[in-house]
Design a protein around this nucleic acid. Structure first.
Lengths: 149, 149
DNA sequence: CCTACGATCTCCAGTGGCTGTAGCTTCAAG
DNA sequence: CTTGAAGCTACAGCCACTGGAGATCGTAGG
């Protein structure tokens, strides 16, 4: 009879770590699966698809709360999809802001590294720039919109 | 006599939160400052410059461990600056990898959002793409090199 | 049936870089 | 001397996992 797959196989098939699957279950992102008599988790295709959705959304930068909402929406096919659209747009905005910020950093870092001609620390451009913000071309590299890695 | 500034003023002058300053002290990034008889911290110009260096480096994306190394280097002006250069280059590489990854995400998200013409969830392009990785143009949006926000 | 061994179990702690809270004490102005 | 802002310590929480300890389960081979 259909017994389902163990957590390790689900992990392998979705490119997720075993602990991460258990974590998703713990925070209620995945439902509690069936268990064997001995207490081990067994999963079916529905769970595999759900986890696939989660992983894919994560890869695209969605946060777990956003994913929770998206899963709720997907479970209710008759509803208007404006909400899903809004979530995706918010995420896109986030991603774009992060790109803009990182590009500003890249400019400063590249200039800093390029100007360092490898003498002694005394005359190191890298340390000099770090010590004095005024040496930056754009003093506008403010802290990020959303928290940094 | 010179009593130095309180933590709040240092915070204001460097654009740092008070708790963050205490946290930096706790992890040994800033030295323990002088205290008043009542136990409050008092800072001088040297500390202000050091914190300024830290904040500036943070804004440029350096991690606290990298900053610790940079501070050590800066304290020793006779040494070769190759190490500082290496740290900065590593950070630049990190930033560039993050940009590349985010740009890939941006592509997918933008396409996803654009194709969603706001019908019902049933026919929502956003949810469809999330449910089926094969609908992505580049299946190459792998997990990030360094951990995500 | 027994053993061996990998897979799985639960629980807990740690990551980075802060941020917020509770319940105090201290400082400085009036 | 009073008051109110600012400081103090200690600890919990954030996100999204990740790793480890130590026990148990499942299954293949003998």
């Amino acid at each position: 009879m259909e017994t389902g797959m163990a957590i390790g196989e689900l992990a392998r098939r979705t490119g997720t770590k075993v602990q991460t699957i258990r974590y998703y279950e713990q925070i209620g992102l995945l439902p509690e699966p069936l268990r064997t008599a001995g207490g081990q988790r067994r999963y079916g295709e529905a769970e595999r698809r759900r986890l696939g959705f989660v992983r894919h959304a994560r890869e695209l930068g969605f946060g777990l709360e956003a994913i929770r909402e998206l899963l709720d929406l997907a479970a209710d096919p008759g509803r208007d999809c404006a909400h899903a659209d809004r979530i995706a747009k918010a995420n896109l905005g986030d991603v774009r802001r992060k790109i803009a910020r990182l590009q500003a950093l890249e400019q400063e870092l590249a200039r800093m590294v390029e100007e360092c001609r490898g003498g002694r620390v005394e005359e190191c451009r890298v340390l000099e720039v770090l010590a004095d913000h005024d040496l930056c071309l754009s003093p506008e590299h403010a802290p990020p919109a959303s928290p940094e890695p």
